[in-house]
C-alpha cells in the first residue's frame, strides 16, 4: 500500500490533475464470505494536495469512495514545473504521499 499514481499536465489556464491511490477502501459493512465476519472498516479519511507547498485542495472522504480511489481536479494559476504533492491518511492512521512535477501541455 502507499502508492499514488499521479498525472499532472497543463491544459490552457489550469493544471489537469488525475491520481489513483492504492487502498482497499473497506466499508466495514461487508462480510468475509469464508468466515462470516465483517471485514473491518479501512478507508481513506483525508486527502490533501499542495502545489509548491501551498494547499490547493483538501478532502474528507467517507466509506463510499471506491477501492483504489480515483481523484481528478483542476488548478488555476499553476504552471509547468510546479511541484505537486498529494497525501492521504486513513482511519487506521496509515498514510502515504506522492509527488509529481506539472508537465507542459
Amino acid at each position: 500500500m502507499g502508492n499514488i499514481r499521479i498525472r499532472a499536465v497543463m491544459n490552457g489556464d489550469y493544471a489537469d490533475i488525475k491520481c489513483l491511490m492504492l487502498h482497499p477502501e473497506d466499508t466495514g459493512l461487508v462480510k468475509n464470505k469464508a468466515t462470516g465476519k465483517l471485514i473491518p472498516a479501512h478507508f481513506i479519511t483525508n486527502v490533501t494536495a499542495t502545489i509548491n507547498g501551498k494547499t490547493v485542495l483538501s478532502a474528507q472522504w467517507g466509506i463510499a469512495i471506491s477501492k483504489n480511489p480515483f481523484l481528478a481536479f483542476r488548478v488555476n494559476g499553476a504552471k509547468a514545473g510546479d511541484k505537486l504533492v498529494i497525501s492521504w491518511v486513513d482511519n487506521l492512521g496509515e498514510s502515504a504521499s506522492g509527488t509529481a512535477t506539472i508537465a507542459a501541455s
Binding site: S58, Q60, G62, I65, L71
Partner: peptide
C-alpha cells in the same frame, strides 16, 4: 461520500469514483 475544500481560484471541478 466526500467533502472537498478548494483553495481560492481553484477551478470548480472535481471527479471521483464512489460505491
Amino acid at each position: 461520500a466526500a467533502d472537498f475544500t478548494l483553495a481560492n481560484g481553484m477551478e470548480p471541478y472535481v471527479t471521483t469514483r464512489i460505491k
